[in-house]
Design a protein around this nucleic acid. Sequence first.
DNA 1: CTCGTGACTTTGT
DNA 2: TACAAAGCCACGA
Length: 95
Amino acid sequence: MRIYATVDSIPEGRVSTYGRIAEEAGIARGARQVGAALRDLPGDRKIPWHRVINAAGKISHGSPAQAALQRRLLEREGVTMSEAGKVDLASYVWP
DNA sequence: CTCGTGACTTTGT
DNA sequence: TACAAAGCCACGA
Protein backbone atom coordinates (compact mmCIF):
# COMPACT_ATOMS: atom_id res chain seq x y z
CA MET A 1 0.00 0.00 0.00
CA ARG A 2 2.79 2.41 0.94
CA ILE A 3 4.21 1.92 -2.51
CA TYR A 4 0.95 2.59 -4.30
CA ALA A 5 0.38 5.74 -2.25
CA THR A 6 3.83 7.05 -3.05
CA VAL A 7 3.60 6.39 -6.77
CA ASP A 8 0.20 8.01 -6.75
CA SER A 9 1.77 11.18 -5.37
CA ILE A 10 3.90 11.74 -8.44
CA PRO A 11 2.47 14.73 -10.33
CA GLU A 12 1.81 14.73 -14.05
CA GLY A 13 4.79 15.54 -16.23
CA ARG A 14 7.21 14.26 -13.60
CA VAL A 15 8.84 10.87 -13.06
CA SER A 16 10.53 9.01 -10.22
CA THR A 17 12.88 6.08 -9.78
CA TYR A 18 12.26 2.73 -8.10
CA GLY A 19 14.85 3.51 -5.49
CA ARG A 20 13.35 6.89 -4.58
CA ILE A 21 9.89 5.41 -4.28
CA ALA A 22 11.08 2.53 -2.14
CA GLU A 23 12.75 4.99 0.19
CA GLU A 24 9.67 7.22 0.35
CA ALA A 25 7.53 4.17 1.05
CA GLY A 26 9.72 3.10 3.94
CA ILE A 27 11.65 0.28 2.29
CA ALA A 28 15.18 1.73 2.24
CA ARG A 29 16.69 -0.56 -0.40
CA GLY A 30 13.63 -2.24 -1.78
CA ALA A 31 13.67 -0.99 -5.32
CA ARG A 32 12.89 -4.49 -6.53
CA GLN A 33 9.86 -4.72 -4.32
CA VAL A 34 8.54 -1.57 -5.91
CA GLY A 35 8.92 -3.15 -9.30
CA ALA A 36 7.17 -6.28 -8.09
CA ALA A 37 4.30 -4.22 -6.71
CA LEU A 38 3.79 -2.45 -10.01
CA ARG A 39 4.16 -5.67 -11.96
CA ASP A 40 1.31 -7.26 -10.04
CA LEU A 41 -0.81 -4.16 -10.51
CA PRO A 42 -4.27 -5.03 -11.88
CA GLY A 43 -4.21 -2.10 -14.25
CA ASP A 44 -7.60 -0.71 -13.41
CA ARG A 45 -6.01 1.05 -10.44
CA LYS A 46 -5.58 4.81 -10.70
CA ILE A 47 -1.85 4.57 -10.36
CA PRO A 48 0.62 6.36 -12.69
CA TRP A 49 2.96 3.38 -12.94
CA HIS A 50 4.37 4.79 -16.18
CA ARG A 51 6.07 7.60 -14.26
CA VAL A 52 8.30 5.05 -12.57
CA ILE A 53 11.66 4.29 -14.22
CA ASN A 54 15.07 3.01 -13.11
CA ALA A 55 18.03 5.06 -11.86
CA ALA A 56 19.43 5.31 -15.40
CA GLY A 57 16.26 6.99 -16.58
CA LYS A 58 15.23 4.05 -18.72
CA ILE A 59 12.39 1.58 -18.84
CA SER A 60 13.74 -1.70 -17.52
CA HIS A 61 11.18 -4.36 -18.01
CA GLY A 62 9.13 -6.74 -19.99
CA SER A 63 7.63 -6.80 -23.41
CA PRO A 64 8.53 -4.25 -26.07
CA ALA A 65 4.83 -3.49 -26.27
CA GLN A 66 4.66 -2.56 -22.63
CA ALA A 67 7.82 -0.44 -22.89
CA ALA A 68 6.45 1.35 -25.93
CA LEU A 69 3.19 2.04 -24.11
CA GLN A 70 4.98 3.53 -21.13
CA ARG A 71 7.11 5.69 -23.36
CA ARG A 72 4.05 6.94 -25.20
CA LEU A 73 2.21 7.76 -21.98
CA LEU A 74 5.17 9.77 -20.69
CA GLU A 75 5.60 11.75 -23.87
CA ARG A 76 1.92 12.53 -23.78
CA GLU A 77 2.54 14.26 -20.44
CA GLY A 78 5.42 16.27 -21.81
CA VAL A 79 8.31 14.08 -20.74
CA THR A 80 10.87 13.96 -23.53
CA MET A 81 13.40 11.19 -24.07
CA SER A 82 16.51 10.55 -26.14
CA GLU A 83 16.43 8.04 -29.00
CA ALA A 84 17.80 5.39 -26.68
CA GLY A 85 14.65 5.92 -24.61
CA LYS A 86 16.44 7.70 -21.82
CA VAL A 87 14.67 10.32 -19.70
CA ASP A 88 16.47 13.47 -18.53
CA LEU A 89 16.20 12.74 -14.81
CA ALA A 90 17.89 16.01 -13.86
CA SER A 91 14.82 17.91 -15.04
CA TYR A 92 11.92 15.48 -14.67
CA VAL A 93 12.57 13.48 -11.51
CA TRP A 94 10.19 14.33 -8.70
CA PRO A 95 12.02 16.26 -5.90
C1' DC B 1 16.14 -21.94 8.27
C1' DT B 2 17.86 -22.04 3.32
C1' DC B 3 17.02 -21.15 -1.72
C1' DG B 4 15.52 -19.06 -5.85
C1' DT B 5 13.52 -15.03 -7.93
C1' DG B 6 13.13 -10.33 -9.75
C1' DA B 7 9.50 -3.47 -13.53
C1' DC B 8 16.66 -2.44 -9.05
C1' DT B 9 21.42 -0.10 -8.14
C1' DT B 10 26.51 0.51 -8.13
C1' DT B 11 30.83 -0.26 -9.63
C1' DG B 12 34.18 -1.82 -12.80
C1' DT B 13 35.54 -3.46 -17.37
C1' DT C 1 26.73 2.54 -24.50
C1' DA C 2 26.74 -2.44 -23.06
C1' DC C 3 27.65 -6.19 -20.02
C1' DA C 4 29.03 -8.67 -15.68
C1' DA C 5 29.31 -9.18 -10.83
C1' DA C 6 27.92 -8.34 -6.36
C1' DG C 7 24.75 -6.12 -3.20
C1' DC C 8 19.99 -5.75 -1.37
C1' DC C 9 15.26 -7.04 0.13
C1' DA C 10 10.55 -9.11 0.57
C1' DC C 11 8.14 -13.47 -0.50
C1' DG C 12 6.97 -18.01 -1.24
C1' DA C 13 8.38 -23.02 -1.66
